[in-house]
Computed example of a mutant assay.
Amino acid sequence: MLCGLLFSLVTWQVLVSGPLLAPDHALSRALVRTVPDSVTERLSDLGNIPVALPVLALAMAYAARRGRLLAAGTAGLAMALVPALVIPFKLWTARPGPLEPWAAGYFPSGHTATAAVAYVGAALLVRPYTRRAWPTAVALVLTGATAVGLILRGWHWPLDVLASLLLCTPLLLGVGLAVRRGPVSRRSTRRSSG
Rank of each mutant, 00 (worst) to 15 (best):
T136I: 13
L9H: 04
L173H: 07
G144P: 08
F7D: 01
A64W: 07
R131H: 15
P50I: 00
V141R: 06
G97S: 08
L77D: 02
H156I: 02
L6C: 12
R191L: 11
P183F: 04
A80D: 00
L9S: 08
L70C: 02
H156V: 00
P54Y: 01
A104D: 02
L162S: 03
S192R: 13
L173P: 03
G144F: 11
S17T: 11
D37C: 05
L159P: 02
G149M: 02
S28T: 12
G76M: 13
A63N: 11
T136V: 14
V86H: 02
R68D: 07
V117C: 09
T11G: 03
L77T: 09
N48H: 08
S164T: 01
L124K: 15
V179C: 11
R180D: 01
R132G: 14
H25K: 15
S28L: 08
A22Y: 00
R95I: 04
T189N: 02
A84K: 09
A26R: 07
D160L: 02
V86N: 00
V35M: 04
R191E: 03
L77S: 11
T169F: 08
C3V: 01
L31T: 06
G182C: 07
S164A: 15
A30T: 05
P23H: 08
L15H: 02
S17I: 06
P128S: 10
P108T: 12
T34K: 03
L58V: 15
G194M: 03
T11V: 06
L6H: 01
S192M: 13
P158C: 12
T11C: 04
A80E: 00
P98W: 06
A103G: 03
A116I: 01
G18P: 13
V126A: 05
Y129L: 09
S164W: 03
P183S: 14
W155T: 07
G97F: 11
M1S: 15
L27Q: 10
L171C: 08
P19V: 14
R180L: 06
T40Q: 09
A84P: 00
R66V: 04
